[in-house]
């Protein structure tokens, strides 16, 4: 599996132009804009980068050759999860550091608990997207995966808008508002634990299915 890690690292290293742009924007954001945006921007770019290794693997029929290296098909799946999850997690940590540096530079005032809550909920969100994207890209194709990504964003946006609209229509009607209040009163710690637990479960299920997908695939 080590070979697969090195391969993916080199694939990303080869996208020098993109990386430089990515880092430049990250730094500019840190010093100028809303600091919290960093914690969504940086991990998101990282996620797109790690998922792009699948596209590169598919390019030029490369998957056939990759599967002749001394790895079993299941190894390929496992490596992708470890690589993607650690890549995104690492950049998420980096983004939080940048965020606090930015707070210092811009002398922003912030409520630590709120910031930590928002930041903490970012990671499971991206990990969940990875958990959905990897099996789709491997079972179907990276192109389909990209389409699905758009659809997901689309659905989320529609849901948010529709949800807002619905709530306004109902005009604070009982159940929904109560749920909202409950959510806001829930201890942030419980919320975070719940989010990570769900994330872990989904990732595990996803990885197991992907291993199975790879074992049944033909190259």
């Amino acid at each position: 599996m080590k070979g697969l890690f090195i391969k993916d690292i080199r694939l990303i290293a080869n996208q020098k132009r993109f990386l430089i742009l990515y880092l430049a924007v990250a730094l500019i954001l840190s010093f100028s804009m809303d600091s919290s945006f960093i914690v969504s921007y940086v991990p998101m770019m990282a996620m797109l980068l790690v998922l792009s290794t699948i596209s590169y693997d598919y390019n030029d029929n490369g998957m056939s050759f990759i599967m002749t290296l001394p790895n079993k098909p299941g190894d390929y799946a496992v490596e992708k999860y470890i690589f993607s999850a650690s890549g995104v997690t690492f950049m998420w940590l980096v983004s939080m550091v940048l965020q606090f540096v930015s707070f210092m530079i811009q002398k922003t005032e912030y409520v630590l608990s709120e910031v930590i809550l928002t930041d903490a909920l970012m990671l499971p969100m991206f990990l969940l997207i990875i958990a959905i994207m990897i099996p789709i890209e491997l079972k179907y194709s990276p192109e389909k995966g990209r389409t699905v990504l758009f659809i997901i964003f689309g659905i989320v946006m529609i849901a948010v808008i529709a949800g807002k609209g619905l709530v306004e229509k109902i005009g604070g009607a009982g159940d929904v508002m109560e749920l909202f209040v409950k959510l806001q009163n829930m201890s942030p710690v419980v919320l975070i634990i719940a989010a990570y637990a769900v994330c872990l479960i989904v990732l595990s299920i996803s990885m197991v299915s992907t291993i199975r997908i790879m074992q049944n695939k033909e190259f």
Binding site: G3, I6, R10, L11, D57, N59, S64, F65, P70, N71
Partner: peptide
């Protein structure tokens, strides 16, 4: 294989590193 190999973006150094880690 005739139509499949390492990524076209790789240089020989990349290939060496991957082979080294694989075999």
């Amino acid at each position: 294989l005739s139509e499949s190999g390492f990524s076209m973006l790789f240089t020989l150094e990349d290939v060496i590193k991957v082979l080294s880690a694989s075999y």
